[in-house]
Structure formats: C-alpha cells, structure tokens
Simulated scan of single mutants.
Amino acid sequence: MDNNNEFIHEDEQKPSDFEPAQSQTISPIRGFFWLERSLSDIYAPNFKGWFVAALIYSLLTNFIPALLPASSFIMAIVNPLLIAGLLLGADAVYKKQGSVKPLQMFEAFKHKNIGQLVLYTIAAILMVFIATMILMSYIGLEVINGIDMARIEAGDEQYGMSVLKKVAPAIPWAALLAILISLATWFAVSLILFSNQKALPAIGNSFVGGLKNFFAVLVFVVVLIVCLVVIVLITSLILSMFAALIANPYIQVLINVVINALAVPVFIGVTYIAYREIFLGDITKSENSL
C-alpha cells in the first residue's frame, strides 16, 4: 500500500540540506508512474532548459568521442559526475527552487560531496572491470583473442553466427551481472547528493532499494521498451524520407546527439522520481499530470 511522505521527517529547529533516506517496498505499478512523473514534474516545466543542457551533455559524451575516439575513456570516467549535475537540476525543478542551467552537468563539481562522488565513480568503474574479467574468464581468452572483428564489421553473417555460438553461454551471466551493477548504481548518486550518504553505503543501499522494488523496476523497463519501439518505428519512417541525407556519418552522429538530448532528461527524471518514491516515500500525484 502506498503511503504519502511516511518516511519524511522534518526538524524545524535544525534544518538540513539533506533528506534522510530509508528504502521501502512500493507497489510495482509505480514503475509506470515514474515515467509519467518524470515527464510532468521534471521535464515539461523546464523543457527548453533541459534540451539545451542535455544537448551540451550529448555533444560532450557522443559527438566529441565520435570525432576523437581517444576521449571516450575520459568521458566514461567523468560521466557519473556529469549525471550528478543533471540530477541536481532535477531536484531544483522538482522543488521549484530553480531552473536547469545550460552547463547544469558541471554543477556537481562544486558540490560539498564531490569527494564521495569521485569515490563512487572509482567503485563503479571497478565493478564494471570485475564483471568484465569474470565474463572474459568464462568465455576464455583464446576465444576472445581469436575473434576477427573486421569480418564481423564487414557483415560476414556465417562467421558472426559462429562467434555468437561460442559466446552464447556467457550471455545469461552477462545479463545477470548487468542487472546487479545497475541496481547497485542507479540510486547511489542520488543518495550521495540528497541524503548525504557515503559512497560505499550508498551503493549498498541502492542495491537493496532496487532489489526490494525489482518488480516496479521491471514494470518501468517494460513500459520503456514499448515506448522505445513506438518511437523507433515513427523515427524510422521519418528518417526513411531523408535516407540520402542521413547516409553521411557525421549527420548520423548529429541525429544521435539530438535524440540523446531529448531522451537524457527523461531518464534523469525517472531516476530522481524513483529515488524519492523508494527512499523518501514521496508518492504523490503530479500537479501537472499529462
């Protein structure tokens, strides 16, 4: 049963910049409302600001790495800090305490918990590295080293299928590891920013909160997949009308940047709303319901 603000306690004598967080189990159907509340409470009230900020974010994380592949690694390292900046924007919009700035993604660099955000980033990279090593060991280094990527990129279907058969046993384990890492990292940044938690406890609490609400997460994923299928179909129809124009790889990158600029704020909003519902008990109907 959903309770409004059950876990929120305000101390009028000693106001705090942070909100205490305790994970709770919420109704699985809330997974649908995360998307609805993200659009109505976070995205719509400041659409222009979000688009500009997300466009700059997409240029940094997509366009520049496409032009300078060597920068991809650097962007992967700083990306959690950039996401933290966008989450601060979501918090300001939700609480009606400000708007999204063009360089919103850099706001976390001057946050008082920047040290914990950096520590979280290191821990997240380490988790991904360990998961990668586990999968590589399971598949076998000989198999991995023997894969000819040039033949796959050239469209050799028969060779591609043979490679797929070799790595297929590792796919379920890859999916499991991806789910575990996602649950451990999804709310960690929000817990550090808004609940003043340390990096490692935040990762643990994120995992527990996500696991307790796995079915709500599953509902959200299903809704997201349906929406993505519809959007992809519509986008494909539109882009097919300009097939000759988008054949240029740079045009394709620009299209991806614009699509990301439209999509990123939605995911930021979902993350923020899900954090508030699971950890703060803030389950309310949007005043701006779409």
Rank of each mutant, 00 (worst) to 15 (best):
Q252D: 00
I246W: 11
L183A: 07
M75L: 07
I225Y: 08
I268M: 14
P45I: 04
N288V: 05
F63P: 05
K165I: 02
K110M: 13
E157V: 11
T271D: 11
A123Y: 15
F109I: 06
I114L: 14
V189E: 05
V258D: 08
W34G: 00
Y159V: 03
F279S: 01
P102A: 04
I77P: 08
L280T: 09
F207L: 15
V229C: 09
Q24K: 12
V118F: 14
I278V: 14
L59R: 00
A216Y: 02
F63W: 13
F279E: 03
H111F: 13
Y120C: 06
E142P: 02
W186Y: 15
S195C: 04
F214Y: 08
M1H: 12
L280A: 13
V189W: 01
T284N: 12
Y138I: 10
W50G: 01
I179R: 03
F32E: 07
V222R: 02
A247W: 02
N260Y: 11
F220K: 04
P201I: 05
G210P: 03
K165H: 04
A263S: 11
T121V: 06
S40P: 06
I152Y: 00
V128M: 13
W50M: 01
A244P: 06
D282P: 00
V258I: 13
P15D: 02
E36A: 10
Y94W: 12
G269S: 09
E153Q: 11
G31F: 03
A188M: 13
L126S: 08
K14C: 07
P172R: 02
I234K: 01
G115S: 12
L67A: 13
F73G: 08
N62W: 11
I238P: 05
A53M: 01
Q104G: 11
N5M: 13
E6M: 14
I130F: 11
I144M: 08
A123N: 03
K212Y: 00
N79T: 15
L233Y: 07
F32R: 03
I77W: 04
A244W: 13
A124L: 10
M127G: 09
V118H: 07
I278M: 03
I114G: 00
N3A: 12
N5T: 07
N5C: 05
K101A: 14
